[in-house]
């Protein structure tokens, strides 16, 4: 594979971030809200892609990691009145811990078993959010808008209800996670991960321990997913058990496949496409989940590489 300079890659991603920064002044208010939501959820997909795209591990249990970030942030705000920054940190930490625990237990399983086992653990987590409803409020969920103090920076206050604050907050977290994923894939760790994905035995013979690299990928993946869940709570004020259900494990898989597994910009593209398609379709038909199903089927049958994957094979082989 021809490797162009690192500069081109970083420049491309920086350009995407700048484009998003500029879009907020151009697009109508509704699309500003949509884009903010897309960026938050794209962070989730970026996290998912780290595991699926680079370590080659398909999980059906990421809802548990996303929801860990969500609940840790939401519950500490609800019960202890923690500030937004600290609550975000706790959310990220909680999902990192959960991802570590999940990895230590499940990575022993082979690839297909891993898929089923992660789904089982996630289902147990979902049931637990219902079982401990005295604390979590179960499926009804809770809101934190009353308890959440505005962010303070540079002597100014930023209220979470302000659409511009939402947008730029989402952009900052998205940019950080995107750059993290680019760095990760270009770092030696990332190359070993791709080695694990392509040929685990050979990587082992070269002296790397595949298990610890997989664990590292899962922790990175889960932490990013948790950051997304945590940010979602701060921006949209709601926490409920539906976010821990199996559908929320399927969504990041769908977004990643659509955008392009193993491409750094694929998750953003997939999330954006799917969010807009669902939004437009729900105005036309009442069964938008049918669309989710059909998209999954079409992608896996005819376009397994996704949009960015297609672009990479055809035009730009240097894309990370």
């Amino acid at each position: 594979m021809r490797r162009p300079g690192a500069r081109a890659v970083w420049a491309l991603h920086l350009a995407v971030i700048l484009l998003l920064l500029g879009l907020q002044v151009v697009v109508p208010p509704f699309h500003q809200i949509m884009l903010a939501r897309i960026m938050v959820l794209a962070v989730y997909a970026i996290g998912y892609n780290v595991l699926l795209g680079y370590a080659g591990l398909m999980s059906l249990g990421h809802a548990m990691l996303f929801a860990s970030g969500m609940y840790a942030t939401g519950l500490t705000i609800l019960y202890f009145g923690v500030g937004a920054g600290a609550a975000f940190g706790l959310g990220v930490l909680a999902s990192a811990v959960m991802a570590t625990a999940l990895g230590l237990v499940t990575l022993r399983a082979s690839r297909v078993s891993f898929l089923i086992v992660t789904m089982m653990f996630s289902q147990a987590f979902y049931l637990a959010t219902l079982y401990f409803n005295e604390i979590t409020m179960g499926d009804q969920g809770f809101i934190i808008s009353g308890q959440l103090a505005p962010l303070r920076a540079g002597g100014r206050e930023f209220a979470f209800s302000d659409p511009a604050v939402k947008y730029n907050l989402a952009l900052v977290v998205f940019a950080l996670c995107l750059m993290l994923s680019v760095w990760l894939t270009r770092s030696p760790i990332g190359r070993v991960l791709v080695g694990v994905r392509e040929n685990e035995e050979r990587t082992r013979l070269l002296g790397y321990n595949p298990l610890s690299y997989k664990l590292l990928a899962l922790i990175a993946s889960g932490t990013i997913a948790g950051a997304s869940g945590s940010l979602y709570t701060l921006m949209f004020s709601y926490v409920g058990s539906s976010f821990a259900s199996i559908l929320y494990s399927i969504y990041p898989l769908l977004w990643t496949l659509l955008g392009g597994t193993g491409t750094t910009l694929g998750p953003l593209l997939g999330t954006a496409l799917m969010t807009y398609v669902v939004d437009i379709a729900s105005g036309l038909t009442s069964s938008y989940l049918l669309l989710v199903g059909a998209t999954l089927l079409i992608l896996i049958m005819w376009f397994p590489a996704g949009v960015m994957g297609g672009i990479r094979t055809r035009w730009a082989r240097w894309l990370p």
């Binding site: 809200i33 709601y238 976010f243 729900s282 009442s286």
Partner: peptide, 20 residues
Amino acid sequence: EDDGTDPRRGAEVVEKLAVH
């Protein structure tokens, strides 16, 4: 506008109705 009896979609529908 259908919300799919889903909390996340519900919040999105409020945005869509109000802003769009």
